[in-house]
Structure formats: C-alpha cells, structure tokens
Design a protein around this nucleic acid. Structure first.
Lengths: 104, 104
DNA sequence: TTTATGTTTCGCAAAATAACGAAATGATTT
DNA sequence: AAATCATTTCGTTATTTTGCGAAACATAAA
C-alpha cells in the first residue's frame, strides 16, 4: 500500500521561505520592513538587535537568498528593503494554505 | 549608540511557528489538514510521505509542540487535526505582519 | 595614498535538526 | 496471557544552523 509521493517543488520552496522566517532576528527584520513599508540599514539593525555585525550579515544574506529582501548599495551604506515581488508570492501561498479556511 | 532590544516573547513565539512550518513534510501535513478542513491518521501520512514512521512521528510531535496540530487517540489510531485555536492565532499574526501592506 | 567607515567573508565551535532502525508502549483481540 | 497493530521513544549518525571575532573588501575622506 506504498503510494509514496515526492514532495512538490512548490511546497519545498514555500517551506524554505517559512524556514527563513523562522528565526526571531530575521522575523523582526521582515516585520520592520513590512510595517514601515520602507527600508533600513544594516547599521541601524545591528544597534537594536542582540547579535553581532557578522551574525546580522548572515541573517540578511539568508533573507536575501530566500528572496524576501533585497539590498541596494547606497554608499557608504547598504539599504535593505522587502523584495516586493516575492513578498506578494509569499502572501499568495499563505493565503492558499488557508484556502478552505475562514477568510483572513 | 547601543540601544539593543530584547526580542519580544511574541516575536519569538511566532518565529517558532514559522520554523515549525519550515519543513516540506510538516508543511505538507498542515496544508492537507487545512485544505481538507479535516483530520488524518499517521498511518495514512506515512504511506504517502517519503519518510519513515519514526521520522514522521517526530514531525508530528514538533507540530504538536508548536501548537499547530493536536492528536486525539481513537484506538487503534491517532487522529490528527489542526489546532484551530492556535491556527487562528497564526493567521492573525501573519496578517499583522502584512499590516501596512496591500490587503490579502 | 593612507585612514576611516560600513559591511561581508572566513574559520571555527557549539548547538540544533533530520533521519533511521530497533526497542518500547498502549490498546485490543485471540 | 500471548499475539497483534499503530504509534512513539531511544540511541545514533550526519548535516545544518547559529554565533562569534578576525580578517578582508569596498568606498569615501583626509
């Protein structure tokens, strides 16, 4: 009665996105960017978050890799913003996850 | 200019929830439970998912621990359903994350 | 061209996660 | 009481994640 499925590319990608969101520092950054509806600088973040510069840089890298944020060089700073295009995608898939559920 | 904050309990909890959602097997289970708007058995899942019984059990345990699902003993099976109360909480916080954004 | 500034990469150590099979548990049936 | 069935826990291994400081990289200012 083995009818093992291969987990779809779609679900694996979505899981990766949730994984990227699954750390308090990264979630804080996303929340901040989302709620301000604007951008911020690594230097600002490192002052308020309880991690060192290199660690923060790693988290930003992961968020970038997951496609959730993007960085623009604005010397001497780097300005980070949400990746709007992918952010929409996340919203859509989340909505889909709740498809048969009560509307949000 | 150090104004380090302590990440709030709220954000840490929410991050834990996303972390729990951040694995394809667990996301598949949640999606299934959400979309069917019903419940399922561990035995059904192990037949379709590409992991062993003990591994699946671990994933179910994590989802339970994160408060996303609940298991009811229905001998000789265990029936798993969404934890509706917490599920609503997840939806709310997700919505909040998108607060200043275009409505879903 | 040296110095300063903001950020990232490197190298490492500690902790957490994912996966498995074997053994244990709990409940039911023989 | 023994056998059966569904599921979980245990013990282990391999991999990934998290975090740090030191060093490297840019870029701009002196």
């Amino acid at each position: 009665m083995e009818q093992k499925i291969e987990l779809s590319q779609e679900i694996r990608e979505l899981a990766n996105i949730y994984k990227a969101m699954g750390h308090p520092v990264r979630l804080y950054i996303l929340q901040k960017l989302s709620q301000m509806n604007s951008c911020c600088y690594s230097g600002d973040l490192v002052d308020e978050l309880p991690v060192g510069r290199s660690t923060l840089s790693q988290h930003l890298k992961e968020l970038k890799y997951a496609g959730l944020i993007q960085g623009e060089i604005e010397p001497p700073y780097i300005k980070y913003c949400l990746n709007r295009k992918n952010w929409e995608k996340v919203k859509t898939s989340f909505h889909k996850l709740f498809k048969e559920d009560i509307a949000i």
